[in-house]
Computed example of a mutant assay.
Amino acid sequence: MATHRLTELPADALKMIATIAGPVHDVEMVSAGYNSEIAARLHLDNGTVFVKGLRQDHPRVWTQQREADINAFTQGLAPALRWEIRKGGWDLLGFEDLGGRHADYSPGSPDLELVLQAMRYLTSATPPSGVELKTMPQRMIAHVTDPADVRFFEGSTLLHTDWKPDNVLIVDGQARLVDWAWASSGAAWIDPALWVIWLIASGHSAADAESLAALHPAWDITPVRHIDAFACAQQRLWESIARADRPDEWTHKLHAATQAWVEHRG
């Protein structure tokens, strides 16, 4: 799942960035996140910019284009895209540097309401036409018990889907969302359902995690069977990831969280 993170910004990439953004006075490499080889905060003449990038021959370089294409449709939640560079073997994106801090998902955290506000706001967005997005039925087809169950996940809502706390920044009393590489289309209740897994992994009981998800307007109008099928699919997904070579600590936590969720739904 994870992409190897570089600990230094390659000189050739830095040179290309300077031609677009101007002189770079300082580079802070960022360790959080899994999808990029390059993640860095650059200090420029006119402030800072956050850069993420992959080599052009990386198997997931498509995620860079996904983020660039969707950025205009996620204003108010995602950081604004300032520039793109695709040459010299690198695919680089320069974003508004939001600052802030990572969200705290622990029980009782005031950030939980801010995350819910962001989810409610996202519900009003629809997948942009002309941008290639996978649907949740497509993403879950290999993990459902009954292939017919994927119809439960159909919908026209734009979904973020990657609710790792590192992807939620608390900025001026608002939750902002970064890393839209896995944006998809599907039923509106799916983002809060995916959040349930992260909440359990962050110390909530399955019952308490679902109580928070139920504050999302789409939750209570969703048939129980649909959420049951999704919980089981997520358990099978994380089980397969946990069996991969050298899974990290969060993988084990999420696998255990999905098991606890399925057991709770019984």
Rank of each mutant, 00 (worst) to 15 (best):
V24S: 15
D26A: 15
E239F: 14
I221N: 15
Q259W: 07
I17G: 11
N35K: 14
V131S: 08
T161R: 03
Q56L: 13
V168H: 05
D69R: 12
R5F: 02
V171C: 04
D172V: 07
L112H: 07
I221K: 12
A233P: 09
L254P: 14
V27C: 06
S31M: 03
A18L: 10
L44T: 05
E210H: 00
S36A: 09
G89D: 01
R243N: 08
L194P: 00
P137N: 05
G266S: 09
H264Q: 13
P247W: 08
R5S: 03
G89H: 15
F73Q: 02
S185K: 14
R139N: 04
A80K: 05
L122Q: 02
D228E: 04
G100N: 06
A213R: 01
M136K: 10
Q138D: 06
V150A: 05
E8F: 10
K134T: 04
G266E: 07
Q56E: 08
A40F: 13
G89I: 08
H264I: 11
S185M: 02
N46C: 13
W195Y: 12
W163K: 10
L77V: 15
Q65K: 07
D149V: 01
P223I: 07
V150R: 12
R139V: 12
A181W: 11
D45N: 06
A201N: 00
F152S: 07
A257S: 13
E37W: 03
T7L: 05
P59R: 07
L14Y: 05
T19K: 04
P217S: 06
T135H: 03
S202D: 10
D172T: 09
Q75S: 06
V196Y: 11
G88D: 10
K164E: 09
G22N: 10
A2F: 00
I70Y: 00
R243Y: 13
G89S: 06
L177Y: 05
D111Q: 00
D97L: 01
M16G: 15
E28F: 01
I70H: 00
P10T: 05
T258V: 00
E67T: 02
V61W: 01
R101V: 11
D166R: 10
G266V: 04
D228G: 08
L254T: 15
A11G: 04
Q65A: 02
W189A: 06
R41L: 03
R60Q: 14
N35C: 07
P79K: 03
R243H: 06
I70P: 00
H143T: 05
K15Y: 04
V171G: 04
R41M: 06
H252C: 10
A214L: 03
W62Q: 05
A125G: 03
V168F: 08
D26F: 02
A13W: 14
I227H: 02
M1H: 15
Q64M: 14
F95M: 07
A209M: 09
V49C: 10
L93K: 01
Q259S: 03
